[in-house]
């Protein structure tokens, strides 16, 4: 972990498919020669993937410029990955993340492996870390359970959907929740949420040791960062207008997280920025 970062001159991004049982996962490797660390980015869920995509890619490039090789991917049934969304489960998404983390580790086992997740991705990364995968963990806005990440997405969609409906066509979010609880599927921002997805979301829980950084470091003996992203991180996290044609500056957010990460990897960030 003490190696000095090797600043790459040319950044190479390699898109590819990673075969898993029943699907091909879309991946993009931000390749770095002699990386100081490798990092797996586990993104947010379904429709949130599209909203957060821009800064997510920028963060991957930011890290690659600082000598960290990054692998980002789409969950099965979402974005560029194959598979049927409504047939996938949290267990499959979790298993896929583990396969990718192991693949990344296998590239050179002596290089530290970082897991960095956002919202539901943070939850899944936390579960993988809890099972012993990875040397450093950075969680961005992890919910205590997956349902707490699904609810705001549903509420946001209901509000947007209601704008185009009047009178009896309008339904509160609770009506949609009731539909799922009664076994039906609903459509949220182009994705079909099944009753099974909703039910299982309560069972996908952040390991208790990860609820605070100090406790986590003591429990795992490894660096763990837990960051609640605020408004400065929109659209990485929910908030703001649906369509914002405003250029955003993430340099402060990225610098802060890089500072933590570089300290966790035990090298001086100042010499690489």
């Amino acid at each position: 972990m003490g190696a000095q970062p090797h600043k790459p001159t040319v950044l190479v991004e390699r898109a590819g498919y990673f075969p898993v049982s029943g699907a091909h996962l879309y991946t993009v490797l931000h390749h770095v020669e002699k990386p100081v660390a490798r990092l797996l980015l586990a993104g947010s869920f379904a429709s949130e993937r599209h909203n957060s995509f821009g800064p997510w890619v920028l963060w991957a490039r930011y890290l690659a410029q600082r000598g960290v090789e990054v692998l980002r991917f789409d969950y099965r049934g979402v974005g560029e990955s194959e598979g049927v969304f409504e047939e996938a489960s949290f267990q499959q998404w979790s298993d896929d993340l583990v396969l990718l983390a192991n693949w990344l580790r296998s590239q050179s086992p002596e290089v530290p492996l970082v897991l960095n997740g956002l919202e539901i991705g943070a939850l899944l990364a936390g579960l993988a870390f809890d099972s012993g995968i990875g040397d450093v963990l950075l969680l961005w806005s992890p919910p205590a359970n997956a349902n707490l990440a699904l609810r705001p997405t549903l509420l946001k969609w209901v509000v947007a959907d209601q704008l185009f409906k009047f009178g009896d066509d309008r339904k509160p979010a609770t009506a949609y929740i009731r539909q799922m609880e009664e076994g039906s599927s609903i459509e949220v921002e182009g994705y079909r949420w099944s009753a099974k997805l909703w039910r299982e979301s309560f069972e996908v829980v952040l390991p208790s040791a990860l609820s605070d950084e100090t406790g986590a470091r003591a429990a795992y003996g490894k660096p763990v960062g837990v960051v609640k992203l605020g408004k400065e991180a929109i659209p990485l996290v929910k908030g703001g207008p649906a369509v914002a044609d405003i250029p955003r500056d993430f340099s402060s957010l990225f610098a802060k997280n890089w500072s933590w990460l570089s300290a966790a990897l035990a090298f001086d960030a100042g010499s690489n920025s």
């Binding site: 429709s47 974005g79 182009g190």
Partner: peptide, 9 residues
């Protein structure tokens, strides 16, 4: 401002 999968894929 969608990536190529577009809204709701």
């Amino acid at each position: 401002p969608m990536p190529r999968a577009a809204h709701g894929d």
